[in-house]
Design a protein around this nucleic acid. Structure first.
Lengths: 212, 212
DNA sequence: CGCGTTGTTATACGATTGTATAACAGTGAG
DNA sequence: CTCACTGTTATACAATCGTATAACAACGCG
């Protein structure tokens, strides 16, 4: 009388970790943090619960790693668009536009980000990631603003960067959670217009898809 | 051999409901949605778990009621400041300032709001409250903007209101989650400056505490 | 091809969850 | 003062949580 045991393949450590993290993030975005149980994560990843503890010290550690993984990808997705621009104006516009379009601006990501928020308060490691992500994005904004004509003063540029960052964050939030309340690309256009007004630099010519 | 039973007082239905809702919100803001268990809520409210099911059909119903209660209070807190202003400029400035100061701008409230976000997606009643709260705030902004000189066009005012709302939401988020990253009242001043630029109307004279 | 390593599965355990039910006791009506 | 009503407490229950442990089997090495 043998118990029928499911067949399996041995995978590399990196692949296992990533597939488990991805499964956890999927479940969290779909049903909130409570939906990401070890059993559900294992099933989504096509394995069994015990394997999670084999690759992560605890479920909390998996959660921490998943948070870092998500924040890294958000940073990459939004900032890569501005890297190839030829002028600070074009780079700013590209950064704004990519931040206010899928896949960055998306209900899934907003809910995911929100679900992690309360853990960020207590856990020092997660708090560090949270602040580093925010700071990196804002510093990029500030460095681009300082390269604009007449915006070289760091003190002034800091305030402008905080304001521009707030516009982007607010639109990202609302566009992600209430997608049906806005016309296609409306969020993107409003973001470019508002930041143009704040900076006193017209970025709206960069609204359409075109090379700089 | 009698079991020692804790003494109690009979309270009104309204008082019980509110004390249970308040306890649930406190726990959620402190430790996330998972911390608001029926036992923890009852203990915080000074009663026993069974009483929750006496006043609420289920824990989910308590959660829904708590969400509505919180959103109502946030709306009241931020909008009452602008009701007594004598000009649209003063009303706008008062609305912005109250939204970017405690008790509205506060880490506790941001985490609370974020903790509810994923439930808003699935539950139709909560989704309704979410959208209604956002719409009411933005409509108030838009009506004030339309009363500004040269801003009467509804189509234009809509886009401006969305942008101003985004500035406020973004600053509210960042000031709430990273309070140590900003000087006192810095958020408030940046909000007034940015929205002044977006609207082309100087609101910074209303920055200090004074009667309009 | 046989064998040991270890990635993977299966099972079990205590703790905690939301819920259901019954007994108690505070309170107002008569 | 008494009694019935019902707000409140106490207890129990099934389900599910994260975790721990041991048995199995896939794969690389000789």
């Amino acid at each position: 009388m043998t118990v029928d045991r499911r067949s399996f393949r041995r995978e590399s450590e990196d692949q296992r970790r990533e597939s488990l993290i991805l499964a956890a993030l999927e479940l969290m975005s779909e049903g909130g943090p409570a939906a990401a149980t070890v059993r559900a994560i294992a099933e989504r990843a096509g394995t069994t619960p015990g394997l999670i503890r084999h690759y992560f010290q605890s479920k909390d550690q998996l959660t921490r790693d998943a948070y870092r993984w998500m924040m890294d990808r958000m940073t990459t997705d939004s900032q890569s668009a501005s890297a190839t621009a030829s002028s600070p104006e074009a780079a700013l516009a590209a950064l704004i536009r990519s931040s206010l379009q899928p896949p960055v601006m998306d209900g899934t990501r907003v809910r995911l980000w929100a679900g992690f928020l309360h853990m960020v308060q207590d856990d020092p490691a997660m708090r560090e990631v949270h602040m580093a992500t925010y700071t990196r994005y804002r510093d990029l904004l500030q460095s681009l603003i300082q390269r604009l004509p007449g915006k070289g003063n760091p003190g002034v540029a800091r305030g402008l960067a905080i304001a521009c960052n707030a516009v982007i964050d607010g639109l990202w939030l609302e566009g992600g959670t209430l997608p049906d309340s806005f016309a296609p690309r409306e969020i993107e256009q409003i973001g470019l217009s508002a930041i143009s007004a704040i900076l006193g630099t017209d970025l709206t010519p960069f609204a359409k898809d075109q090379d700089a």
